[in-house]
Each structure stands twice: as structure tokens, then as C-alpha cells.
Design a protein around this nucleic acid. Sequence first.
DNA 1: CGCTCGCTTGATCTCCTTCAAGGACAGTGG
DNA 2: CCACTGTCCTTGAAGGAGATCAAGCGAGCG
Lengths: 239, 239
Amino acid sequence: MTTVGEILAQHLACIGELPDEDRAILAALPAEERDLRRLRDTLKAGERPTHVVVVLSGFLYRYTIGPEGARQIHSFYHPTEAPCLETLYIDYMDNSLGAVVDSRIGLIPHEAVYRVIDERPEARKLLWRQTLVQAAIFRQWLVRNSNLPAHASLANFFCELFTRARAAGLVKDGGCDLPLTQEFVAEALGLTPVHVNRTLKVLRETGAVDWRSGRLTVKDWTMLADMGDFDAGYLHLRC
Amino acid sequence: MTTVGEILAQHLACIGELPDEDRAILAALPAEERDLRRLRDTLKAGERPTHVVVVLSGFLYRYTIGPEGARQIHSFYHPTEAPCLETLYIDYMDNSLGAVVDSRIGLIPHEAVYRVIDERPEARKLLWRQTLVQAAIFRQWLVRNSNLPAHASLANFFCELFTRARAAGLVKDGGCDLPLTQEFVAEALGLTPVHVNRTLKVLRETGAVDWRSGRLTVKDWTMLADMGDFDAGYLHLRC
DNA sequence: CGCTCGCTTGATCTCCTTCAAGGACAGTGG
DNA sequence: CCACTGTCCTTGAAGGAGATCAAGCGAGCG
């Protein structure tokens, strides 16, 4: 039986060296599991979170609602990822965290994590680094949505989520789950659903990638990475 | 005589409670000062930084170079701000840090900061939080560049930099220095210089704001914040 | 004085949006 | 088993925000 803490430890080990003792301490963290139904939020803008979230299954997303109800998505989260580590040291949420599809999440109380941070410098370093990698991801999303034309943007997006899925051990048969609607992708890339659809059609026709029925299949990684001008460096992954 | 560490401490105090003792320890940090000429970089993508940077005078910017040489700016930094705290726990830079105009910077060796982090939990918390506020700023830039039309985007941009200048104590007579060219702004907002120019013209005509000769003057804050759909919450400032 | 750099403005083009409608598929209830 | 309904995907046609190309202007400076 895997604990929530173990999954967190595993996730941290993707971006740095985690001593066995620290890993054991993380694995022993108290946690609560909870179901989160499709389109429900677990954290809302303005709240003061008290727990760290770990995705156990499903797919989460983080977003803000702009003026006129326009929704901008900041990031998506595969199972094993920890979406809101920054809540540890930010007083209140300036964005919301919800479920794209029915999901299961683990919740670790902040106090328990604070204790680890105080006592285990190596674990602290990786937790901190993880929040910094998040920041690097936001920067990449900024670059993508500001600079790249739609087809490159979409290709780049696929590259990132595929790479993160691989790091999480979720890639099977050259593909991974990506249970989004085209509208979600549009809200992430700052495009309209219609244009995402047309752009996707073009990408499919190149033969580099397919994405349908919630599953992403990469057929030609080199070509896809090239189209999306993707360099995984910003993810700071070891594996 | 103000030390580099004192400026850093002052900056951290903007986002949280900093005990006197921690402040004194930060103030006593060893530091080196250095001039950075216009358009020179102090950190380049790919490097492994060894120092924390504090802006003493001038104006810095952080950017990446995309394919075909397109430059995307991720953020600008007023004097007193600390652009690259994340270098403490990120192995290598995935972006560059340079000077918009002739500037002066302070450099604090990482080891000295690590010691503070290990021994002073309150200072550590604020250093960490500062890196998280940076991430929140990146998210806001993502929202701005993805969703907002040019005039709102520019207004929002002015709002952020004005608010940060105020927090840094740099606002005088309803204005602050903003020594950028229109091309820099274009690279920040993901627009062309030509379009920034036209958009600026429109904003000036509203009477809410002016920006020329490197100086930003806010004449009607409410109107400007409204046009830019600006809410300072994401900056997590206390003052 | 002439040169460069940055600001300004005009004309045209294009990528993406907007508006609109049809089609595929799954779930539900008769 | 099949109509009914809703959700998501797909495609077409027209419109617009911003890009691109091009040229003139003004101020600082060697």
C-alpha cells in the first residue's frame, strides 16, 4: 500500500537527490484521501489553504477567472504531481485548483510538512525546488502563449505534458492520458476552441502526434519537439 | 551607509514580518557591488549562478531567446528588488538576466544565504515566499499576455510596475522611473513595437496615464486599474 | 553638421476570432 | 431497441485585432 507521502517523495526524487531517511519521513506523513468530482474545485481563489495537495488519480487544473468570465488555465497536473506546494508560504490563494475529470487527491496538513522542512534540509531543498520548477513552468507558458503561433504552441503544450507524464511513469505504448476537452486546451493556450480544433487537425496531418478520446499519442517525438520548439530543460528533471 | 543585505531585508519586509534579529543578520551579509552596463547580462541561460542578485540602481530584465531570435521578457526589476532568488535551489539558469540601462547590482554569495536559511526560519520563510511571489507574477503575466487585448495589457503592465515601485519607495510626484524603450515593452507583452506605440497613444488620450522619456506618470489610478483589470492581490504586498 | 536610435504614422496583410450550423457519440428513459 | 438529449468535435464564412512593411521625424551625440 502506497502512502500519499510516498508518492510525494517519489515526485520530489524526480528533480533531485532524496536521502533514504528523508524519503522514509516523507512517506510517513499523515494524509487524508478524498474524491474530487469533475469540475469541482478543491481550492478556491481567496482561501487560506491548510493542506498540501497530491494528485492520486484523474487530472487537475489551476486557473483564474478574468473579467467577463474568461478563464485562463495556468497549468495541468498529472497523478503523482503536487499542484500547490506554494500554499505552504503564501497566505491566500490567488487562483483556484479544480478537477478536469473525476479525480482522487491526497491531503497532507501543512504543520506536518513544516516539521519536515525544519528538520530535514534535503527534503526542504527539494520541496523548495519543486516550487521553483513550477515557476519555471509558468514562465514557459508565458513564452508559449506570447510568442508562438498556434500550431507551435499546441505542439509545445503536448511536449510538456508528455514529458511530465513520462517522469511520473505514466507513459504506456508511446502515449499517455490527457483527458481534456478542446475547450480546456483553448483556455490554457489563450486560443478559441474553434482554432484549437483546426490547429489540431493540422498537427494530426503531420503524423507527429495524435490526441483524441482523452489520450495523447506521440508518433514522432523529434518532429513534435521541433515543431513546438521544445527543450525540456526548464522542467529540471533528472529522469 | 546601507548594505546590500539591508536592502534585501527591506525588500523581504514588504511581504511579511521580519524580526529585528533576522533583519540584522541579513544586513550583515557579505556582498560585492558591481556596475552592469546597458544591455549586458549578469546571468546567462545555462550558467550555474553562485550569487544572489539585488538591484541597487538602474533597471534589470529577465528574458529568454526563442527560435528565430525572438526575445520574450519574463519580468523587469526595480532597484531594491531581488531578481533571481530562485538560483539558490535551481541548478542552472533557464533564462538570462540583463540590464535595461546602466545599473548597479549587489551580489551575495549563496553560501552566506544558505547559512541564514538554515539558522533563521523567519528569514527563510520570507525568502521562500519571495520566490513564490515571483511565480505569482509570472502567472499574472501569462494571464495578461494570453487573454487581454493590447490596451488592457499595457494598462495592466503599468499598474504592476507602478505598484512595485511604490512598494520599493520609488514613487515620487505620482510617477516612477520606467526607463524602457517601446521595444522592450513589446517583448514583454508579446506585441510588436508598432502596436505598442499605437496602443500607448490611445492610453495617453484617456488621460489616465502617461509614459515618455523613461518616466511613468499615473494621473488617474482608478481609471488605469480599471482599464487593465488590475488587482494587486497577486503581489502579496503588506504595504 | 550628419548620424544613429527611438518614436510616430500610414497602408496592407494575415492569423485568429466570431458567429453559425451540422455531425458523432454516450447516457437516459420510454 | 430506439428516439431524445446533451456534450463535444468539426467545418464554413465573415470580420477584426494585431502583424508586417515602409517611411518620415525628432533628439542626443560624436
